[in-house]
Design a binder for these strands. Structure first.
Length: 488
RNA sequence: GGCCCCUUCGUCUAGUCAGGCCUAGGACACCAGGUUUUCAUCCUGGCGACAGGGGUUCAAAUCCCCUAGGGGUCACCA
């Protein structure tokens, strides 16, 4: 039997990182077993669903590299893949259950239900439907329908207990008396989640339902519905929740929750995928950094942890840096480019013209950056006017520690700049610099600290000889002259 | 509160299904050293956990029971 799994987001916002992880696990599981990954849009909530949100979710899914085999834009044998387009089928199945007495019409209005709930809570009872319309006579139902009274359709939960084997948690049992006669069809005739999810999963031949743990308590309702419909029950696997620092379900209160935000913040794509997988799953307990291929090779649902995972922004940042540093400079440069443009440091055209130069800068900066977005502020000194480089306090203090600072800077101007002009690279400049120091029997800091201050105005940063090359002889000369005066 | 789920370092986790190889391994963070022209990277070391209590067993992080704690969910949302 081919494995068929699905990810079924509701288009009511951006793609949540928890949802993305669920999708990733489903996707990996399908790929691992040569199965099919279905993407289905659960837009039964007309109030909150938007096309805009659907677009952004699809875009984020693609960005993460999850191609769906069936779903919006990809024809499949069980479409359409948007619930709003499948209404006829829901009505059909509902009519069947009604006919068989497995569901019934309920004429209780919102007002009655609300006061019922309030009363129950006041009595310290559990709020639940009281079965008021469960056994209405066919005549009464017909009469009230004819009178145009609005009604919902409720599922008639049978007696007994419902059990299923969860691939993450093992055997789970619910007493049916704890399960409410839930609403399948709203009074406007539209279907609810628990109803459509079963219809669609069955129609789409889904074999494994992997979803967040918040759905665990819905499962008995759904199992019961499969049984009432005479359908085969799929296998379930409830993934642990992703938690915020407060150990509660990850929400905006404790940090960013959408994939798009991390993308926009400049996290490498593969780092996002890798990190999400680390929440609740481990390759071997040793390897933290792994590829999508490795994920697909070894992902098993039974290896998923049971406990919730606190989302750790620090570790995420570390992992982002791991990925960014491994990138080829030209790739990294391309990904940093939008941020450089946004910061107003270079235009797209300039970036194009000086792509070699920019890549070289990126290469020199990669070890010092974790997110693409971090680059601009770290190379801002390159875009300052040469006459107005601002020295920060520590840089200037470091430079002033060396009494021969002016002399050393002058020596750099007189010996290194000509070398640079002649086309020397950073390695050659470094040699020349060291020779210059050896001559005078000075240690490196005597050169490094004044020079760094002169060139960058900062106490730390990239290799000085790289900086010399990036700046070029003209600009370096201006900065040196100015420093010789200012640091005198 | 009812029901359901969960519980190994601060955090992510390996080990639990098939009890001995675990004086519990790795990673992030933190601390201390080292390399380095600074910063960063990199390297070395340190700190640090089986929620508690009972069983079962020659032997329990691993199996059973209880307690405690945390979470999820209780809609004409999904």
């Amino acid at each position: 039997m081919t494995v068929r799994v699905r990810y079924a987001p509701s288009p009511t916002g951006l793609l949540h990182v928890g949802g993305a992880r669920t999708a990733l696990f489903n996707w990996a599981w399908a790929r691992r077993h040569g199965g099919v990954f279905v993407l289905r849009i659960e837009d039964t909530d007309k109030e909150r669903s938007t096309e805009e949100s659907e677009r952004s979710i699809l875009e984020a899914m693609r960005w993460l590299g999850m191609e769906w085999d069936e779903g919006p834009g990809v024809e499949g044998p069980y479409g359409p893949y948007r619930q709003s387009e499948r209404n006829a089928r829901y009505q059909e199945l509902c009519a069947r259950l009604l006919e068989e007495g497995k569901a019934y019409r309920c004429f209780c209005d919102a007002e009655r239900l609300t006061s019922l709930r309030e009363q129950q809570m006041a009595n310290k009872e559990n709020p639940r439907y009281d079965g008021h319309c469960r056994d209405l006579s066919p005549e009464e139902v017909a009469r009230r329908m004819a009178a145009g009274e609005p009604y919902t359709v409720r599922f008639r939960v049978p007696e007994g207990e419902t059990r299923f084997t969860d691939h993450v948690r093992g055997e789970v049992v619910f007493q049916n008396k704890e399960v409410d006669d839930w609403v399948m069809l709203r009074s406007d005739g539209s279907p609810t989640y628990n109803f459509v999810v079963v219809c669609d999963d069955a129609d789409m031949k889904i074999t494994h339902v992997l979803r967040g743990e918040e759905h665990l308590v819905n499962t008995p309702k759904q199992v019961l519905l499969y049984e009432a419909l005479g359908l085969e029950v799929p296998e379930f696997g409830h993934l642990p929740l992703m938690l915020g620092a407060d150990k509660k379900k990850l929400s905006k209160r404790t940090g960013h929750t959408s994939v798009q935000v991390y993308r926009d913040l400049g996290y490498p794509r593969d780092a996002v995928v890798n990190f999400l997988c680390l929440q609740g799953w481990a390759l071997d307990g040793e390897t933290e950094v792994f590829s999508v291929d490795q994920l697909v090779e070894s992902f098993e649902v039974r290896d998923v942890s049971k406990g919730g995972a606190v989302f750790d922004p620090e570790k995420f940042l570390w992992l982002a840096g791991e990925y960014l540093r491994q990138e080829a400079p030209e790739v990294c440069a391309e990904r940093c480019a939008p941020y450089v443009i946004e910061a107003g440091q270079m235009t797209a055209e300039e970036l194009e013209e000086r792509s070699g130069w920019f890549q070289e800068v990126v290469r020199g900066m990669q070890e010092r950056v974790r997110l693409y977005s971090e680059l601009p502020e770290k190379i801002a000194f390159l875009f300052e006017g040469d006459e107005e480089v601002s020295y920060d306090e520590k840089a200037e203090k470091n430079a002033r520690k060396h009494e021969h600072r002016a002399e050393v800077l002058a020596a750099v101007r007189d010996t290194l700049l000509p070398t640079l002009e002649a086309g020397a690279d950073a390695a050659a400049l470094s040699e020349a610099g060291k020779a210059l120091l050896a001559e005078r029997e000075w240690k490196f800091p005597a050169l490094g600290q004044p020079l760094r201050c002169a060139l960058t105005g900062a106490a730390g940063g990239p290799d000085l000889f790289d900086v010399l090359v990036w700046l070029g002889p003209e600009r370096a000369r201006v900065r040196l002259e100015r420093a010789i005066e200012r640091l005198a």
